[in-house]
């Protein structure tokens, strides 16, 4: 997904000379093609996230569209005030490409795990927050970013994810995608958790439980209408995110229902990272298990809401 995101920056830079890449001491060879073809629009800056966000704001004020890339925790926590003031108060078209949303950097420990990035980015006026489910969708998202006039936070999942998104569904910022229909229950998901939900829906199907999957790639602006419409037809809803349960997708769904359709609230249950910093290393999958984000917990939560045994 990351490779696709960066390939797209290169493609975009060929299409539009407003496109600029800004990295903060990334690995060797990153975007070499762009660096060779458009050396003026390729910036590899030092380990200085506060500065690169301010710099990107300055470039955007003069009409450029900067794509800023580094590790998600450092692009959010380290320079939160720069993101808030320089990008969001000024409402500038800067794109933050955040490597390693959730447990991707499991072996590196809690300093490197972006567990609350969606919540803190979502709290900022003018910021859009997007978490695509695979590389194909990343491609569609990236190619649609040129004309969005506000800042965008783009959350990357792990690399080499299965492709589950479909061309025919297209991509529109702020519009959720029904990936699977089901008459009994609904998983509402974002990022690569959409993949886990689709697998889980297959498992449930074998047991005769028909569950749909609504992929909410854009957590902000939130697709109130699409989400509420999808929830109305089912008896149980489970939100799934590789993000702390406070303030992310599940919270957005609850807020939306609380305001618009409180009668839907009892249907909802949330699955996400518990409200604590990771205490284990291992792999992304082992962390997900540790956090209780697995097919079997999804099955359990769905069956409980449907009123059956798990």
């Amino acid at each position: 997904m990351r490779k696709m995101a960066l390939d797209c920056v290169y493609k975009l830079s060929k299409l539009d000379d407003r496109v600029i890449f800004v990295g903060s001491d990334l690995g060797p060879g990153v975007l070499d093609k762009m660096k060779t073809e458009f050396p003026d629009r390729f910036f590899m800056e030092g380990v200085s996230e506060q500065y690169i966000v301010g710099m990107a704001a300055g470039l955007a004020m003069e009409g450029f569209i900067p794509y800023v890339n580094t590790i998600a925790t450092f692009l959010t926590r380290r320079c939160y005030e720069q993101v808030a003031v320089d990008l969001c108060i000024h409402d500038l078209p800067v794109r933050l490409i955040a490597n390693g949303g959730g447990g991707v950097y499991a072996p590196l420990g809690p300093t490197h795990l972006a567990i609350e990035d969606i919540a803190i980015m979502r709290a900022l006026p003018n910021m859009a927050v997007v978490a695509p489910c695979d590389a194909d969708e990343m491609n569609r998202l990236m190619m649609s970013t040129l004309e969005w006039p506000h800042p965008i936070y783009i959350r990357l999942g792990k690399g080499g994810d299965k492709i589950v998104s479909e061309e025919k569904n297209g991509f529109e910022l702020g519009k959720s995608i029904k990936m699977r229909t089901g008459i009994d229950g609904l998983f509402i998901t974002t990022g690569v958790m959409t993949q886990l939900a689709l697998e889980t829906a297959d498992i449930l199907k074998k047991d005769g439980v028909d569950v749909g999957v609504l992929h909410v790639h854009t957590i902000k602006p939130f697709d109130h209408a699409g989400v509420i419409a999808a929830m109305k037809d089912v008896r149980a809803v489970v939100t799934v995110e590789e993000h702390i349960v406070n303030g992310g997708l599940g919270s957005a769904v609850l807020e939306s229902c609380s305001e618009l359709n409180p009668e839907l609230l009892p249907k909802i249950s949330r699955i996400g990272i518990p409200d604590k910093f990771a205490t284990e290393y291992g792999s992304q999958n082992s962390l997900l298990k540790h956090w209780g984000i697995t097919s079997s917990t999804l099955v359990g939560a769905m069956m409980k809401k449907l009123g059956g045994a798990s």
Binding site: G54, M55, A57, G58, L59, M61, E62, G63, Q82, D86
Partner: peptide
């Protein structure tokens, strides 16, 4: 930082 970005632009 913003001034540097503008100067580069």
């Amino acid at each position: 930082p913003i001034g540097v970005g503008i100067a580069l632009a």
